[in-house]
Nucleic acid binder design. Structure first.
Lengths: 246, 246
DNA sequence: AGAAAACCTGCACAAACCTGCATTTTTTAA
DNA sequence: TTAAAAAATGCAGGTTTGTGCAGGTTTTCT
């Protein structure tokens, strides 16, 4: 059997079943595992399949859309600070938004963590990394914000208990606390806070001092505030009274 | 034997078997390996065959795998048929897989539909369209398959009732019914079937007559079988006994 | 935390490959 | 017809490719 033939066969199998196991292939094709591995590696190099531990997957299934992210630099700084709160074996509740997603990208891979989320994009991002378990709390999905909302979700949230919650926010003010303009998000965020031992709010400094229509939580209901500014920055002093600024 | 004759013979062999080995040819034609190699090289230069290490392949096979989604055309036909089952206000349970995704892309936008799914990619796709409500049943997310699995999901599924379930499958056989190689998928698919009034299985005809490790449902547990073939096609007659073929 | 499976790296060896050259066959044209 | 030119073939050599195996490492699962 020629190499190319083998690879055609593999591609066909993947297109048909969306996945193949190295072990299966190596008995079917009667070659060593190394050869199969090399074939898969090569096909993956050409972008024809997606190589994973133990076999390969169809790459047509998992193309995720990623656009430009606003204020990437600042968000990277925030991410680094947030990650310092993570510890082995933690249950971490995460929300949505690009800031949170940046954090997820740089979480140390050697920690074993369990993430709980209601957000589709966050869940998808987390699935790219091994070592994490991902629990998605279901419910009716809000089109605009792409996360689960509604009574089901709130009830599901009530049933869990996380060690830490990483919450992005659209508006934060020393007096008014955090707020949002979307009613459904607010309900979910309140429930997330309630289900978490500690809460860290992450936001770029740009949003400091803004208030939106619906109230989520006062500052003293939160444990950490994380921005890209150094903790000593004057813009943060008002917040430092009611929670720890990182 | 003339050079032209040899090359003629080689082309004939390739058209018949889709491949030739240099070694075979050189004994059959009683010439040195170098000569065979040179012939193959020449034919390949004219684009008549595809030269590979150790022999040559038919070039007709090779070029069709470049499609973005495998068998997109067939899947579009399937999608059109599936959509004919949809009615205003229906609750529709959908699985994952590219076939199902193709269907979701052409669902008429003017129907108001409520979709229920455990699959992140399907949910994300559906969110692109207004007019639909999307309910995502949560649980632990399986990394490989990117949908929710485990006891939570099964229990969530038990709590809902859909009018119609659109189920992709990796393997289907008139005797053995539908099956899959992934244990977790199987559990979820079983629950999906159980929670649905009617079930439509969608698959490209290529998969007809294949069986995988784990059994999901016999054919008579399903209501519709949808392939790209016309219902009268002989390959479908065995299936027509136990369910409606579209 | 420990075992099993999958992985990678380097190595060895055979098969296939290429290059250049000598030999044979075919073609061309005087 | 025959000699020169051109093409085709086979061979020697050195190179590349494909494959399997040994070993040590990483990943996964429990």
């Amino acid at each position: 059997m020629l190499k190319k033939e083998r690879q055609e066969y593999i591609l066909q199998q993947i297109n048909r079943h969306n996945k193949v196991l190295s072990a299966d292939l190596c008995t079917k094709l009667a070659v060593s595992e190394d050869t199969v591995r090399r074939d898969l590696h090569e096909l993956a190099g050409d972008g024809k399949i997606l190589k994973v531990h133990g076999g390969a997957l169809s790459n047509t299934l998992y193309q995720d859309t990623q656009g430009e992210i606003y204020a990437r630099q600042e968000k990277a700084i925030i991410a680094a600070k947030a990650v310092s709160l993570f510890e082995e074996g933690m249950y971490i509740m995460v929300g949505g938004g690009t800031t949170v997603r940046e954090i997820l990208k740089i979480v140390p891979r050697d920690l074993r963590l369990i993430f709980i989320t209601v957000n589709l994009a966050s869940a998808t991002e987390l699935l790219n990394y091994t070592n994490y378990e991902v629990i998605l709390l279901g419910g009716k999905v809000s089109r605009h914000t792409r996360f689960c909302t509604g009574g089901d979700t709130i009830m599901n949230l009530a049933d869990v208990r996380a060690d830490l919650c990483i919450l992005g926010t659209n508006a934060i003010d020393a007096e008014a606390g955090i707020s949002d303009s979307d009613y459904e998000s607010v309900q979910v965020k309140k429930a997330m806070i309630k289900s978490s031992e500690r809460v860290a709010v992450v936001t770029i400094s740009e949003k400091l001092g803004s208030v939106e229509r619906f109230h989520i939580s006062p500052m003293n209901g939160l444990d950490y505030l994380i921005t890209e500014l150094p903790p000593a920055h004057e813009a943060l002093q008002d917040y430092a009274k009611s929670c720890e600024v990182l």
